[in-house]
Nucleic acid binder design. Structure first.
Lengths: 338, 338
DNA sequence: GCTGGCACTCGAACGCCAAGAGTGCCAGGC
DNA sequence: GCCTGGCACTCTTGGCGTTCGAGTGCCAGC
């Protein structure tokens, strides 16, 4: 068990290292923090912290830097979440309020997060599986060509082309549109498959082929789009990463290009509460020198998607967590309003 | 006027430098290219090329590297466009053919371009101004809430929420929908404003407010969405940029984050034919050490949008130009089919 | 107009040394 | 028992001079 002061020393080390990017020594610590003891004492504490694996020395005659384990302890026990200032809050709200559609909301959220945290921001589009259907529209582009448009309660829109096996009249189309909407509007996407499964039976023989095709396309859209989309931004913040550039930044950029990786990353975050993954806690290889701070957001109580930032393990955790939480909260509000 | 051989020397310098990333000397040139003369002669030629500003020495006792002006001459007079191999062509076609919707087409195009050229790829979504209207849909979400959906011939879909000043009945809605479509389907977006300007006059007094609102929203959407969207990818290729990382890469990443900058960049490319902007020819400050290779693409004869890559001035121009042109061609085909 | 020869320049690499930061440990004091 | 001042030790960092080699420019000769 670590004494109170040793924890205090760890906190001081983390804070200083985050600020200066340089290994911090015992003397510097006593100068910048009122620890009430001499450097020699701090040295003993540091030796103990190193034995426990919370800090490490890059080389023998250098100061100490926190390890992943050290950051973990810091985040779990030593640091709170730093709330944003009220000007910041107002700025967020203003900026998000002027969004015109869902794409715009997401785009603005990304910019905002990247600016506030000075890190790479990742925002997932509201998920289809947890959303409900607001409307299904069928348009006839030609007698044998339909367009299916799917609108969610979060404002997301998906469309698909459909080639009909046989000409499909306007009355049949209106009929199908009405029946389809009657069954699925307001329901969750996950429930749609059962809700429409016997729909084609109520149609004339000649139209059944088309109806079946439409239903198949609808279900396909649901499945395909469960592969969620996301938007990232603030990659130029990666340049503030460290000194040994190419090696560090390369795998990160590569990971960021892989939507699958990012979705998995966000997916592993808890539904509620802020999740912080530090360095090697990250499953993906290219991201072992980064930390991920993620949180769910949603229009109601439940999270419909997640957002977060990716940055160096040496980051300002309290500030980042505060910004991420605040942005998630406001985006949730915006979505609820629309 | 430069002699034939001196041009040949310039070509050799560009090729070698692009391959090795290192200043190329007279001896190395004679070894790798059959120029038929001795290093001393090459040195004279190089001195001449340097006088003309086509090549430069990083420092006195180093080899030469091409200047922007040198690359320009190379691109204009010395290099052709290298066509892709037929396996590559087949791969492109296969990859693009399996796209499910417009977003997917664009996303795949970006990946493809980035992979083929090993550079940062930028693809603009098909522009609204040059597109035609395929369909306008109006959905009633509640008696006082409408959704406007706009579908283009390139498959792009835009939607907007509309709050009606007064309740709007289903029959009025159907009427408006029919009249709207009758007027604008198949027409260019640019022509829409005049086509709908007196539409509200044929409606009952009580509905006019709503009709006016709908029309206003439609026009607003046209204007707003003329601010085009685009997608970028392959940023991890920036790591292969050069040796002096942070300074070079930072402004590039920043420029890439600014959609406005990129749109302007692509916008300045010619409508037909490949445009190559080299180094300082680029208007944007952060991109003075990059070259941009861009080309228009479209479903018909006319370009509806542009795509291209951004890379170091030291790039394989013939190969890059070949890849960009080929990808643009295939994307055009895909769009024409859908 | 090309070529071989030659002197020259200059950056990269290396080794060396001194300075400074930081540590670990120990003996003494509260 | 814990803290502290002192001290020897370790290593990195930066400056400096030297060497090495690539590449150049120029010139005389063919």
């Amino acid at each position: 068990m670590l004494s109170e002061r040793r924890l205090e020393v760890l906190r001081a080390i983390v804070q200083d290292y985050v600020g200066t990017e340089e290994p911090v020594g015992s003397k510097a610590l006593t100068e910048r923090h009122r620890l009430g003891v001499s450097p020699a004492t701090i040295r003993n504490d540091m030796a103990a912290l190193e034995d426990e694996g919370f800090i490490a020395q890059p080389h023998t005659s250098a100061g100490r830097i926190p390890t992943d384990k050290g950051y973990r302890l810091f985040v779990d026990r030593l640091a709170g979440v730093k709330p944003l200032s009220s000007p910041e809050r107002r700025a967020i709200q203003n900026f998000l309020d002027s969004a015109v559609d869902l794409d715009d909301v997401v785009a603005r959220t990304v910019r905002l997060l990247a600016q506030l945290t000075r890190q790479v921001a990742v925002v997932q589009y509201p998920s289809l599986t947890r959303s409900t259907v607001r409307h299904v529209e069928l348009l006839s582009l030609s007698p044998v060509r339909l367009m299916l448009v799917l609108i969610t309660d979060t404002g997301r829109v998906e469309q698909r082309m459909i080639d009909c096996p046989a000409p499909f009249g306007e009355t049949s189309l209106a009929d199908l549109r009405a029946r389809l909407n009657a069954r699925v509007v307001g329901r969750r996407f996950a429930d749609v498959p059962q809700l429409v499964q016997d729909l084609q039976e109520s149609f004339e023989q000649e139209d059944r082929g088309t109806v079946t095709t439409v239903l198949a396309t609808l279900l396909e859209t649901l499945v395909e789009e469960t592969e969620e989309r996301l938007m990232i931004g603030g990659t130029s913040n990666l340049t503030r990463f460290g000194h040994d550039f190419p090696l560090t930044i390369r795998p990160v950029l590569e990971a960021l290009e892989e939507q699958v990786v990012l979705l998995k990353l966000l997916g592993e975050a808890q539904d509620s509460g802020i999740t912080v993954r530090i360095g090697h806690e990250n499953p993906h290889e290219g991201l072992t020198s980064t930390s991920v701070v993620a949180v769910g957001y949603g229009s109601g109580d439940e999270a419909v998607a997640k957002l977060g930032v990716v940055g160096p393990t040496r980051m300002d955790y309290p500030g980042t967590m505060g910004a991420v939480r605040a942005v998630a909260r406001y985006v949730g509000q915006i979505l609820a309003e629309s």
